[in-house]
Structure formats: structure tokens, C-alpha cells
């Protein structure tokens, strides 16, 4: 037993203080870059329309007041998907590729920013816009008379996970994008992976299992389970609480696997310089 005088508390406090002291400058650096990135987003009209304008469109579907749980879920899923694809995925992908073309990424690496801080700083404005768009989807849905989510915590976790996975997919896609023009083609796989979830209710057998394992399939699964407590593949079946939680957790696991895969790909393949 440790004698009272040898209490480790001060050491732990010091260690925690040291970690905090290290985190603060890192956060300051990330925020400085994120602020600049937000300015760039606001000053580029095309990016702004993609990042802010497009996520507003699905809200009209919700405002029209879909009556059944399935149609309500469909409208919400579309809103969340658009929020992930445009402000999060496309904004980060085009930023990374354009900044790399302009040697901005290489320039940033000459300073005190660590590589992960550069990525975070570039991703942050799009991620915030994506979260705001999702919050708008929830607000409009509730105003339109849709019942409140059954498991808000899982829903929040899912949205955060989706922001992370679509950011990671943007970095992985950037690794395969030679320049800004090539983004139109290189982004197609992620577009398909995201939209695949819309077909989930129509599929069965191996095709259904395949689509369930895509980020889009996970999005549909987790939204339906955590908000409405229904299955992604059989909307007529209301899931008991534990089964809904289990389904949502399954969706989250798929999101986690895609995140790991995308981060691994980006770390192996992404270059910081157009010369590399």
C-alpha cells in the first residue's frame, strides 16, 4: 500500500497540465488555419454554393411535411447525406487538392503546424457547416411535425462519425486526385458509396449486405434505427429498443471501419506537394 505522503496526485496533475499546455497551442494553430480556410470558403462563390446552398434544398422536402415514417426518414437521410457530401466531403477534397496545386500545403508544412493540424484546420469549417446543416435538418423536421428522435445520443454520435468518415474519405480521394479538374472523376466512388444507402430498402440478399456495409448504407441504418426505431430494410417493422440500438451500433461500426480504411489510405498515398 502506498504511504499517504507518496500521493501521486501532483504528478498526475502536472502531467495533465503538460498535456493541456501542449493542446492549447495546437488548438490555437488549428483555429488560425481554420479561420483562414473559412474566409476562403466564403470568398469562393462556387464552393460557397456547394457547401451552403445545396444542403438547404432537402429541407424543402421536410418542410413539405412527409406523413409516414418511411418518407420522413427518406427526407432526413437525404438532408444528412447532402450535408456530408457537399460541405464536408467536397469542400475538404477541393481545398486539399487546390491548396496542394498552389503549393500552399507544402508552405504550411514549413511552419509550426503539424501535419494533422493542417488537416484539421482545413477540415474544420466544412465540418462545422455539415453539423449546422444536420442541425437544420433536425430543426426543420421537428417543426414539420416529425416525432423527436428515439435515441438522440446515438443520432449525435452517428452524425459526428459521418463527419469524420466523409472528411477521411475526402483525404483518401485527394490522394488519387492529380489536380482540381480530376476531382470530378476521382470523387465519383465516394459519391456512389454515399448514395448507395438510398437503395437499401429496395435490395435483399448479398446486394443488401453489400450496401449495408457502405457509408451511405450505414447512414440510412443509423438514422432509421436511432430516430424512428425502424429497420433500414423493412420499414414496416418497428424494432424493439435493444434491437434498434444494436442496429444503430452496427451502422456506427461500419462508419468506424470506413474511417480507419480511409485514414490508412490517405496516410499511405496522400502527397503534400505537387512535385512529389
Amino acid at each position: 500500500m502506498r504511504p499517504p505522503s507518496a500521493a501521486p496526485a501532483p504528478d498526475r496533475t502536472a502531467a495533465a497540465g503538460g498535456r493541456l499546455a501542449a493542446v492549447r497551442p495546437a488548438a490555437r494553430r488549428v483555429l488560425a488555419l481554420a479561420r483562414a480556410q473559412a474566409l476562403l470558403l466564403l470568398r469562393n462563390r462556387t464552393t460557397l454554393v456547394y457547401a451552403v446552398g445545396l444542403p438547404v434544398a432537402p429541407l424543402a422536402l421536410l418542410a413539405a411535411g412527409p406523413s409516414t415514417a418511411v418518407s420522413q426518414a427518406g427526407a432526413i437521410e437525404l438532408g444528412v447525406l447532402v450535408a456530408m457530401l457537399f460541405p464536408v466531403f467536397y469542400a475538404l477534397l477541393s481545398s486539399v487538392v487546390a491548396r496542394r496545386d498552389e503549393s500552399v500545403l507544402q508552405r504550411l508544412r514549413t511552419g509550426e503546424l503539424a501535419d494533422r493540424e493542417i488537416v484539421l484546420g482545413l477540415a474544420l469549417p466544412g465540418a462545422v457547416l455539415g453539423l449546422v446543416a444536420c442541425a437544420a435538418v433536425v430543426a426543420v423536421a421537428l417543426l414539420a411535425g416529425v416525432s423527436a428522435p428515439r435515441d438522440p445520443l446515438l443520432l449525435v454520435l452517428a452524425v459526428l462519425g459521418l463527419v469524420v468518415v466523409f472528411s477521411a474519405l475526402a483525404l483518401a480521394t485527394a490522394a488519387f486526385s492529380r489536380d482540381v479538374e480530376s476531382v470530378q472523376l476521382s470523387s465519383a466512388p465516394v459519391l456512389l458509396l454515399g448514395m448507395a444507402g438510398s437503395f437499401l430498402p429496395l435490395l435483399d440478399g448479398p446486394a443488401r449486405a453489400l450496401v449495408e456495409s457502405t457509408p451511405g448504407g450505414a447512414l440510412v441504418t443509423v438514422v432509421r434505427a436511432s430516430w424512428f426505431g425502424i429497420s433500414a430494410t423493412d420499414a414496416s417493422a418497428t424494432l424493439p429498443g435493444a434491437a434498434a440500438t444494436s442496429a444503430a451500433l452496427g451502422g456506427l461500426a461500419v462508419i468506424a471501419v470506413w474511417t480507419v480504411l480511409a485514414v490508412w489510405t490517405a496516410r499511405r498515398r496522400m502527397t503534400w506537394s505537387p512535385r512529389a
Binding site: P25, R28, R29, L31, A32, L33, R35, A36, L39, L40, R43, N44, R99, E102, S103, V104, L105, Q106, R107, L108, G111, E112, L113
Partner: peptide
């Protein structure tokens, strides 16, 4: 030079200063 074209001179310096010790 690798500096974002849509930032002003002051924006660039503010950003860079924000990343320095």
C-alpha cells in the same frame, strides 16, 4: 510561393502568426 490567392496580405500574416510560438 504557396499562399492562398483569395486571402489578403493581412489575412495571410494573421493566419501565419496564429500558428507561431
Amino acid at each position: 510561393s504557396g499562399l492562398p490567392g483569395d486571402l489578403t496580405v493581412l489575412d495571410v500574416l494573421r493566419m501565419w502568426a496564429g500558428t507561431l510560438s
